[in-house]
């Protein structure tokens, strides 16, 4: 780890001010950044820890929308339970140590192509709330580790419309226990959304063909015969692109069958 300065602001405004220094970097739960620092793969001059910002923590529900502060830990989301599929997803991220430190804002800002939360946000049609604006999930996830966030912009909250039914199925990469393929399915009055993580070189994405089929008939059988192209899917020592394409279909069916 290289030496760095650290600031621990108490408000969003202070955090934004601290991050105006171009060599400053936001630190959420640190579940990606700290290991990166320890391996000397990053050398920020200053870290701005968001863990002391009280207004970014907590979960509230109003009008069918669950609002989760960007600094809320996976453990807290897992314990909430008012959006069952989301809480179940949070309960299966990483291990107990990761869940007690990692935050939803950090995960969504990082946009790891195999992370779970991006699938929940995109699959639920969530809204990403920052210190400057609100961004629809469809516009937010740009690519692998790429998002619509500007330099210094902080995720203060994520708003999830609670669907009629939803479920997340994760087939784990057995070492990291990130998603080798994860599929989030949400059924709403406006139709069905299917978001896939872990599979694509483009990061989290929607499987529109499955959404169309499921919007007409929300059953696993409605997916019979639907396949995913292996083009541009991730291939690594844990699985080929073809295997991931196959798993997308399997996990989607399982998510539909399990949705509640």
């Amino acid at each position: 780890m290289y030496a760095f300065d650290i600031e621990r602001p108490a408000t969003v405004a202070e955090a934004v001010a601290a991050l105006s220094n171009e060599d400053a970097q936001a630190l959420g739960g640190g579940q990606t950044l700290i290991p990166t620092l320890k391996q000397r793969l990053a050398s920020p001059e200053k870290l701005v820890s968001l863990t002391g910002v009280a207004e970014m923590k907590g979960i509230s529900s109003a009008g069918g929308v669950l609002t989760i502060g960007g600094g809320t830990t996976h453990d807290d989301v897992a314990a909430d339970g008012s959006y069952k599929a989301l809480s179940e997803l949070a309960a299966n991220i990483g291990d107990p140590a990761v869940r007690s430190r990692g935050t939803i804002g950090g995960s969504i800002a990082n946009n790891d192509p195999s992370a779970c939360y991006p699938a929940a946000a995109l699959g639920s049609g969530a809204t990403i709330v920052t210190n400057e604006r609100e961004i629809a999930a469809d516009d937010y996830f740009v690519g692998m580790f790429e998002t619509a966030l500007d330099e210094g912009e902080i995720i203060t909250a994520v708003k999830f419309p609670i669907p009629e039914k939803a479920n997340y199925q994760k087939f784990v990469q057995p070492a990291s226990r990130f998603a080798l393929v994860g599929v989030f399915v949400a059924k709403t009055a406006d139709g069905v959304r299917v978001a896939v993580t872990g599979a694509s070189n483009e990061g989290v994405h929607r499987w529109t063909a499955a959404e169309e089929a499921l919007s007409k008939d929300f059953s696993a059988g409605a997916l019979d015969g639907l396949t995913v192209s292996a083009d541009d899917l991730i291939a690594d020592l844990h699985g080929s692109a073809e295997y991931r394409a196959h798993l997308v279909a399997v996990m989607t069916k399982r998510a539909v069958a399990a949705a509640s």
């Binding site: 057995p174 070492a175 990291s176 690594d236 020592l237 844990h238």
Partner: peptide, 10 residues
């Protein structure tokens, strides 16, 4: 390629 616990499965 399997030089860490992110890829080597214990």
């Amino acid at each position: 390629l399997s030089a860490s616990y992110m890829d080597y499965v214990m």
